[in-house]
Design a protein around this nucleic acid. Structure first.
Length: 646
RNA sequence: GCUGGCGUAGCUCAACGGCAGAGCAGCUGAUUUGUAAUCAGCAGGUUGAUGGUUCAAAUCCAUUCGCCAGCUCCA
């Protein structure tokens, strides 16, 4: 008779006596829900398979398909099933790694010939075959040495490489059908649990993410517990495509790119330029209100100066150089240098600090061709850049107020954001002590504000650690916008100092920071955030005047002049088209208001506003409408911007 | 930069070795219309660029520029 043990079943906390060695699924089965409704479990906080046996007093929590952890397990299993399919069609393929990711899963393969779309369809078909066989996923523990021998025998060199770096004496194998993979697990009980999946794309990916390594072929896919959820996801992708800023940029006539101009160079059309103008004015005002001073530096600075700053040594690959009168110049990839020189232009007292130099600085960076992406990744962009020079004692307060600034601005646009702290990378400058101090200051400020953040080891800039703020685009891809970067090295290199209360020279601390980041990228993310339907304060056209017939055009022109006089960004559609046609056009252009004018309106010297959501407002005078737009601008910009932008 | 896919009218796409086409947009005319597409006609192209194969190239090949997905890198 085996020994009885006590299992506490969470989340309710029921206690259960079972014989030692009872399987997880059996125990869960006793709790009223059938064994089939579970796919895995948490045993003493650790994810395990249903077949795992319980050997001691434990806490157990079932993971059903509705649990957040379940989808990850399913997708991980889907990756294994895909690998099984690939190996059955392409036996010579070598498998690398295949994890679940945010929106699905992938698996990397080393194959002689890259996969084609046809291959994906074949693989999908084989996967369906595997799922219909309901193959069990079975787990087995194997000594590491034996595992190395096993995979060496199969020629699976990537698995061997992984195993050679493991320190555990025993590893686990998972097998479904004839496919065996090195894996921690857990997995779904059998392949039949995978009911809804789709292979979405194939792309090259370097082994272990290192471009010096072999390039493997990565197949991406996604999986859900039911067809409906998969369908919903595919619909989301289709919706996201409609929100893509590259598409909306064209449709709304905001900006363009031209292969004649070159890659990564934005051409702003009137409406896009107007949005930028509004953003820039907004930014200048917000900075001036917070004690920043506007400055403007040159685009070309002597290469000697870039050598002095360290950019030539650490950032040369990303810079453009040219020659003027036999002197080498570098096009600025960052705005800091002239700000340094402004600081140095006179003797500074501790009473002057902190100094906050702000510049809407246009920079050029040579980005690799493959990374360019609409407005979000370009080669020329304008940063809302500032450099703060302060005493070490002031550093914490400065960082806290920058974080407040970021949170306030993101709130105006309605963005949720994620924060990261990045620490010292390889190939960096400065002493360990400086890095520790700066990293500590950033961390402390975030903790003080009670904000969550991820820690990114070794991802700081070459000159200092940083806090990054990431916003999401239509596809939930994250883009870095705001960033706060400490720099203990530039003040050193430029020998910046201030006279302290003690009459002696001291070294100021420096912070680089941007709030929106690059105006290009921010606009790109913003377009997707609003799906092109900008709030009134940002809309390049706020009101489209549409007449029922040509007979009202004179009156319409008068309304137009009056609205323009008030600062409302209005336009008149003068084409002799039907009203519905003109409404549709304005609707597709996502103009916030359409002002309808027919005989009735002319008689009453009024307009009939229609909002872009279809709601109809009562007749009002142009002046009343201007008041309304002004209120709406102020509301949507949280009191920042009214009608005075043009 | 790397792997793969793709560049045809302003836009979305067809033709995939044999006369370069459609819808929308544009222009002209008719229509004067009440809240998401009025009708008719006209015009629009060295098929991204360069070179090659071929009797014949948008189509096949090479180079190059650009775009897309991902990797690497980053605002």
């Amino acid at each position: 008779m085996p020994k009885e043990i006590e299992v506490t079943v969470l989340p309710v906390g029921n206690k259960l006596e079972v014989p030692k060695g009872t399987s997880v699924s059996e125990i869960l089965g006793k709790m009223g829900r059938s064994g089939d409704s579970w796919i895995a479990a948490k045993l003493n906080g650790q994810l395990v398979d249903l077949t795992r046996t319980v050997e001691e007093n434990s806490a157990l929590e079932g993971i059903g398909i509705d649990s957040p952890a379940a989808i990850e397990i399913l997708r991980h299993s889907a990756a294994h099933i895909m690998a099984q399919a690939v190996k059955s069609i392409f036996p010579e393929a070598r498998v690398a790694i295949g994890p679940a990711i945010e929106a699905g899963f992938y698996y990397d393969f080393d194959v002689a010939r890259p996969f084609t779309q046809d291959d994906l369809e074949k693989i999908e078909a084989t996967m369906r075959d595997i799922t219909s066989q309901k193959l069990a996923f079975s787990r087995r523990e194997v000594p590491r040495e034996e595992a190395i021998g096993f995979f060496s025998g199969l020629g699976e060199k990537y698995k061997v490489e992984l195993l050679e770096e493991f320190t555990d004496p025993v590893v686990s194998f998972y097998q479904q059908g004839d496919f065996i993979d090195l894996c921690r697990g857990p997995h779904i009980p059998h392949s039949g649990f995978l009911k809804a999946f789709k292979l979405t794309s194939v792309a090259g990916a370097y082994w272990r993410g290192d471009e010096r390594n072999q390039m493997l072929q990565r197949i991406y896919g996604t999986a859900f517990f039911d067809i409906k959820a998969l369908k919903k996801y595919l619909e989301f992708l289709a919706e996201a495509q409609k929100r893509d800023h590259r598409r909306l940029g064209k449709e709304l006539d905001l900006f363009s790119f031209s292969d004649e101009v070159g890659a990564g160079m934005v051409i702003y059309h009137p409406k896009g330029a107007l949005i930028r103008h509004i953003l820039e004015n907004f930014e200048k005002r917000e900075h001036l209100l917070r004690g920043y001073q506007l400055v403007i530096g040159p685009t070309l600075l002597k290469t000697e100066l870039w050598k002095k700053s360290g950019h030539f040594d650490h950032y040369r690959e990303n810079m453009y150089f040219t020659e003027i009168d036999e002197q080498s110049y570098g096009v600025k990839p960052m705005n800091c240098l002239s700000h340094m020189l402004i600081y140095k232009s006179k003797i500074r007292s501790y009473r002057d600090l902190p100094l906050r130099f702000f510049e809407l600085g246009t920079v050029h960076r040579h980005e690799k061709s493959g990374v360019l992406h609409g407005l979000n990744r370009v080669r020329q962009f304008t940063q809302d850049d500032a450099h703060i020079l302060c005493t070490p004692e002031q550093l914490n307060d400065e960082i806290v107020s920058i974080i407040d600034f970021v949170a306030e601005v993101m709130g105006i646009f309605g963005f949720d954001f994620e924060m990261e702290i990045s620490t010292r990378p390889e190939n960096s400058i400065g002493s360990d002590e400086d890095w520790d101090q700066a990293t500590g200051a950033l961390t402390k400020a975030l903790q003080q504000k009670g904000l969550d953040f991820h820690l990114c080891e070794g991802e700081g800039a070459f000159y200092g650690p940083k806090i990054d703020v990431k916003l999401k685009d239509a596809l939930d891809r994250r883009w870095q916008c705001a960033t706060i970067q400490c720099d203990f090295t530039l003040p050193e290199r430029f020998d910046l100092n201030y006279i302290g209360a003690d009459g002696a020279k001291h070294r100021p601390v420096m912070v680089h920071r941007v709030i929106l980041g690059s105006l290009e990228r921010f606009l790109g993310v913003l377009i997707e955030h609003y799906a092109g339907a900008f709030p009134a304060w940002l809309a390049p056209v706020q009101a489209m005047i549409v007449t029922v017939t040509d007979a009202q055009l004179d009156f319409a022109r008068g309304v137009f002049r009056e609205l323009r006089g008030r600062g409302v960004r209005a336009e008149v559609d003068m084409r002799s088209e039907k009203l519905g046609y003109k409404i549709r056009e304005a609707q597709l252009q996502k103009v916030p208001y359409m002002l309808v004018i027919g005989d009735k309106e002319v008689q009453q010297e009024a307009i009939a506003p229609r909002k872009r959501d279809g709601t109809q407002l009562d007749l009002m005078t142009p002046s009343q409408f201007a008041d309304l737009v002004e209120r709406e601008c102020l509301d949507s910009s949280k009191g920042r911007v009214g009608l005075n932008v043009i």
